[in-house]
C-alpha cells in the first residue's frame, strides 16, 4: 500500500524541493521506510481505541498572567531574531501580483 507514495506531492506538502539528481536516492530510502511502517497496517486492532497521548490527560487551564520578557518581540526581531524585517514587521516577497 505504502509503496504508492507520490514524492512530488509529499515534497509540495512539506514545501521542499527535490533536486533531479537526488530523486532516485530519496525515493529508494523513503520506500524502505514506508515498507517498514507497513507493519502497523497489518496489525489486528479490532475494537481498540486510538491513543493520541500517553497520559490521556484532560485540557488544563492556567492563570492568564502575561509574560514579561526581557525585551519585546519586536526588539528581538529587529536585533536579528527574524531574518528580514521592515519597521518592526516581517517581510515576505510580494503575495498579490
Amino acid at each position: 500500500m505504502s509503496a504508492s507514495f507520490d514524492l512530488d506531492y509529499l515534497a509540495q506538502l512539506m514545501r521542499l524541493n527535490i533536486k533531479p539528481e537526488e530523486r532516485t536516492g530519496i525515493e529508494e530510502k523513503l520506500g524502505s521506510v514506508m515498507e517498514m511502517i507497513d507493519q502497523v497496517v497489518q496489525a489486528d486492532t479490532e475494537g481498540v481505541e486510538p491513543l493520541a497521548h500517553p497520559l490521556e490527560i484532560h485540557t488544563v487551564l492556567r492563570s492568564d498572567i502575561p509574560d514579561e520578557p526581557a525585551r519585546s518581540l519586536r526588539d528581538w526581531m529587529q536585533d536579528g531574531g527574524a531574518p528580514e524585517t521592515e519597521d518592526g514587521f516581517y517581510t515576505v516577497p510580494k503575495v498579490i501580483p
Binding site: 509529499l10 506538502l13 530519496i26 530510502k29 523513503l30 511502517i37 502497523v40 496489525a43 486492532t45 486510538p50
Partner: peptide
Amino acid sequence: VRRRIMVGAHVLARGFYDAYYLQAQKCRRL
C-alpha cells in the same frame, strides 16, 4: 529531517490517515 517530515506528510495525507496514523495510534494503545 526532510525524509522524516515527508513520511509524516504521507501518513497524515487523505487516503492514508486511517491506515497509518490512526492505526498506529491504536497499536500504541496495545
